[in-house]
Amino acid sequence: MRKNIPKIQYITQDSARFSHSEQARLMFEKGIECVQIRMKNSTEEEILTQAKQALQSAKKYGKTLIINDSIEIAKEIGAHGVHLGLSDTPINEARDFLGDEFIIGGTTNTIEDIQLQQSRGANYVGLGPFKHTTTKKNISPIIGLNGYKEILFQMKNLKLDIPIIAVGGIQLNDIETLTQTGLYGVALSGALLQTLNNHNTD
């Protein structure tokens, strides 16, 4: 089932200045279509609180909220979707739990990962990392620009059709180059958080 997948996604990260829900609100205010709440070092209760507040902002601005990892929290609050890593709940099981309306994205690093996540029913895949990133531990092998081009070429030959979102270490000046390859969209974290820090100096 093809869903309306935003082309620019912001992934929240731990910040001394902005809570995850504040990051979501500020990004929606800036016009970012989609925010993924990613709280790897938090309790379920903390994630639930932040996700609920972020969803209020998403509804206010008519934007999309995705929850990283937790299909239970996504279902409980009625988020728009979830993003699942290769070692998280398999996407087909998440689909059974969540139903057809939810956007479900999956992490990938290779053409084989893309085939797997698509076969499980992913609506889009995050493919990365593009460059070295400090926001994620135990990162997969770096793909780089040529890696993206090669994977897109392989997808064309295999007739694989699924939105590919580049992720991992992407800066604002990388966006144009990446989208010119034929990638569907990009996910940003640190680069956009930096703009908040710069624009909200006391």
Rank of each mutant, 00 (worst) to 15 (best):
R2I: 15
K7M: 07
K7I: 01
Q9C: 14
Q9N: 14
Q9F: 13
Y10N: 11
Q13L: 15
Q13T: 09
D14Y: 04
A16P: 07
A16S: 11
F18M: 06
H20T: 01
S21T: 01
S21Q: 06
A24E: 08
A24F: 13
A24W: 07
L26P: 02
F28P: 12
F28Q: 11
K30W: 13
K30V: 01
V35F: 14
Q36Y: 03
R38N: 07
M39I: 07
M39H: 10
E45K: 14
E46I: 10
I47S: 05
I47D: 03
L48T: 08
T49V: 09
T49R: 12
Q50M: 13
A54W: 14
S57R: 06
S57K: 06
G62E: 01
G62C: 01
L65A: 15
L65G: 12
N68F: 00
K75W: 00
G78L: 10
G78S: 12
H83Q: 05
G85I: 03
G85Q: 07
L86F: 00
N92K: 15
A94M: 02
A94Q: 01
R95L: 13
D96M: 13
D96C: 07
F97L: 06
F97C: 06
E101C: 02
I104R: 02
G106K: 00
I111D: 01
E112I: 05
I114A: 10
Q117K: 15
Q117L: 00
G121D: 11
Y124G: 02
Y124L: 07
G126E: 03
G126R: 11
G128I: 12
G128Y: 12
P129I: 10
H132A: 15
H132K: 11
T133V: 13
T135C: 08
K137F: 05
G144H: 13
N146K: 11
E150V: 03
K156V: 11
K156W: 01
L158P: 00
K159N: 12
L160G: 05
P163E: 06
I165K: 06
G169E: 06
G169D: 14
Q171I: 00
L172D: 11
D174Y: 03
T177M: 11
T177E: 14
L178P: 09
L178Q: 06
T179L: 15
T181G: 09
Y184S: 05
A187L: 08
L188R: 05
S189D: 05
G190A: 11
A191P: 05
L193A: 00
N198C: 04
H199V: 02
